[in-house]
């Protein structure tokens, strides 16, 4: 079936099987490999993208369900001139990554979380990131980065 999705502002359309997952559509059809597949069971959050502005786990959404909607991936966060999004910059400045595998999902989940609640406490951030796992256990700096970014975004 023909599935059209606007990804990072660019209209894309591919003939895919109904069973294709959104994360496969993003990675394999659209060729955007910044979104990682981790657990593939909606636990780890590595595949987090924004669907019409809200964070979702793209391993547990069918591409067909998103036909006609807008998706933002990690590639779509920075400005066209390369200026990092405030959350990306905070992750960089706070050294909020070790191996980096969880980072695209962490950043996308954080952006969505800050938009929903710009005045978060440390506890709010830790709870809000419950759906994103960092196997390096680098949570401390991730939380620091999200708090720093949320202050900038205010």
């Amino acid at each position: 079936m023909e599935v059209s999705i606007k990804i990072n502002g660019v209209e894309q359309s591919y003939d895919v099987e109904p069973r294709m997952l959104l994360v496969q559509y993003i990675r394999e059809a659209a060729g955007l490999t910044g979104t990682n597949i981790g657990c593939d069971t909606s636990s780890c959050g590595a595949c987090t993208v924004h669907l019409d502005g809200e964070s979702v786990k793209s391993c547990t959404v069918l591409a067909a369900q998103v036909n006609g909607m807008e998706v933002t991936t990690i590639e779509g966060l920075a400005d066209n001139d390369g200026t990092l999004h405030p959350v990306q910059r905070a992750f960089h400045e706070c050294h909020a990554l070790q191996c980096g595998y969880c980072t695209p999902g962490m950043v996308m989940a954080s952006v969505s979380m800050i938009e929903e609640n710009p005045s978060m406490t440390e506890d709010d951030v830790r709870e809000g990131l419950e759906g994103n796992l960092c196997r390096c256990t680098g949570y401390h700096n991730i939380v620091k980065a999200v708090l720093q970014a949320s202050e900038v975004s205010l």
Partner: peptide, 9 residues
């Protein structure tokens, strides 16, 4: 239930 991403869906 789940986490924020799950609760969005």
């Amino acid at each position: 239930v789940g986490d924020p991403q799950v609760r969005h869906r």
